[in-house]
Amino acid sequence: MSRVGIASLVSIRGDGSLDERELVRAVVGRAIAASGVTRAQIGATVSASNDLVVGMPFSFVGPLDVIGAWPPISESHVETDGIFALWEAWLRLTIGDLDAALVYAFGRGSAGDQGKVSALALDPILTAPLAPDASVLERLQLQAAADAGVLDAVDVPTGPSPPAVDGAVAMVLVREPLRARAWITGFDQRIDHASVGWRDLVGLPHVRAAGGGAGMGAAERIVLSAPWIGQAALVADALGAPRRAVRLLDGPVAPMAAGLDAVGAALRWIDDGARVVGVIGSAGPALQHVAALTLEAP
């Protein structure tokens, strides 16, 4: 089976003045231009966004203008973080019927209170009505780790969650013999139970399973898209990696685009000489749904 890799990745942040279509337009053309493949070679597009983030129904439709959706193309969309769009595109390329695929994700964090938006992903009858924002569940996760002696009390956040911004990321996936910036050697995703009180918030067995499935043991460094450094320590422990090996994605991130920005950070490590790096993307409260991606230098 020929290898699948990442040919290019372009990311931007918006200041609120660009709409969804304009954010995506600012990255897709550049990602294709940098990939070495033509639009005609792209056999599938997978995108990621979330209507409640943007505050608009069918918010994925406008950006389809940017990819030239007429005559009809093969296109699909996931209503979650972009790392899962990447997973779908990777899966499609591993089947072997396409040579290249486009993946993009966008979010407008400035549109609303994103902590309240994430609360709506919780059990709608027993939990969401209580309206715990995202930071409540993350703080409980880290407090539970501190209670268990796995983290120090100083690792439990006392401030609010980092602010969400607007942004978009686009990338082109290719199959050999096309040239890649990094090859994907493993990719797995696992989801934990929706009830936060039923989960092992500290041991994160689903992170361990995803990392094992992705063969992440060989990774020299791993980037995690999550807000708190204590979560990076828990992920390192679950993966059996040294804590210093797992870094948080730096800077303000756009909802739904964060996972692909983490892939961008991993690509920069490869560009700088790393051989094998890992990415842990996440969606849902307190790392509920994770994707583990292992990349290797060409």
């Binding site: 609120g16 003045s17 660009l18 709409d19 969804e20 279509r21 304009e22 409640l52 505050g55 608009m56 407008r108 400035s110 549109a111 609303g112 209170d113 309240k116 938006v117 709506l120 709608p124 009858i125 969401a128 009505p129």
Partner: peptide
């Protein structure tokens, strides 16, 4: 059945072209 109200506040920004 239960009734569960959901309310979210947004700022719509129209973008450059719009």
């Amino acid at each position: 059945t239960v009734r569960t109200p959901v309310g979210l506040d947004y700022v719509a920004r129209a973008g450059v072209a719009a």
